[in-house]
């Protein structure tokens, strides 16, 4: 077993219209690390995350949890890499919260009993077990974000990829989500421009801009580097 959760070398990807999204990106993340991927809108953060479970494929080397990201590995990869999309309405497509959390385990081919057990545990972990039989559109945005995280936790992934988990949340929902993420044992790569989330959750930060990694280091140093942050359309995390 390799010690790397993510190993990416010289990854290039261009959109179908020819625009370059990733321009030779190189990054390694060790198992157990929690890393903030910060950068302005359009830096390529979401596009990069989609490469880590094979939803998008570019040129270059991508290895996740010791496996090259190739078609033969997709079933195992997708079971071990939990990707949480920015808009929970994209992630929660089932009639009830429970059905949605059960979707992943069900498609991993687990037994009905195991599916039910995992769905209940995942909902419990995010504090949403009481809403199991509710419909997603009756939940608040913060609740839907929690359920969206439960949908991937139910698959017991080793690596969590989160795309802007705090976007659109009010301060209370945001704080409670950050606290929840802090309790998770998984390796986490979180794409965000919420500097306070990055500072609170991650020891390491990676700054991305225009399809490249432009800085990589301890979060407390990078995120307080006013010149660096300003140069890439970000802001310094305040001390709170």
């Amino acid at each position: 077993m390799s010690d790397w959760a993510i190993r990416v070398r010289e990854l290039r990807y261009a959109y179908p219209d020819g625009r370059e999204a990733l321009r030779g990106l190189t990054l390694t993340v060790a198992r157990g690390e929690k890393v903030a991927l910060v950068g302005p809108n359009g830096a390529g953060k979401s596009t990069f995350l989609l490469h880590l479970n094979g939803l998008l494929r570019g040129e270059g080397v991508v290895e996740v949890l010791g496996m090259p990201v190739v078609e033969a590995n997709f079933p195992r990869l997708r079971a071990q890499v939990g990707l949480v999309f920015q808009d929970p309405d994209d992630q929660l497509f089932s009639p009830t919260v429970f059905d949605d959390v059960a979707f992943g385990p069900l498609h991993m081919g687990l037994s009905a009993e195991e599916v039910r057990r995992r769905a209940r545990q995942a909902l419990e972990a995010v504090g949403m077990l009481h809403a199991a039989h509710r419909m997603p559109h009756h939940l608040s945005l913060g609740e839907r974000k929690r359920v969206a995280i439960a949908t991937v936790l139910a698959m017991r992934p080793e690596l969590l990829l989160l795309d802007e988990p705090t976007a659109g949340l009010d301060p209370r929902a945001r704080r409670s989500l950050i606290a929840l993420l802090g309790t998770l044992p998984q390796t986490i790569l979180v794409a965000t421009h919420d500097m306070r989330l990055a500072a609170a959750l991650c020891r390491r930060a990676v700054v991305m801009d225009e399809g490249l990694i432009v800085a990589d280091g301890p979060a407390d140093r990078l995120l307080t580097d006013a010149a660096l942050m300003e140069a890439h359309g970000l802001e310094v995390a305040c001390e709170c």
Binding site: L55, P75, R78, F103, G104, H107, V152
Partner: peptide, 17 residues
């Protein structure tokens, strides 16, 4: 939505409890 389904292991066949 389709990407979100594929990311959670959907490969063309829907299963249900």
């Amino acid at each position: 939505i389709y990407l979100a389904m594929v990311a959670r292991g959907y490969a063309g066949t829907l299963y249900a409890l």
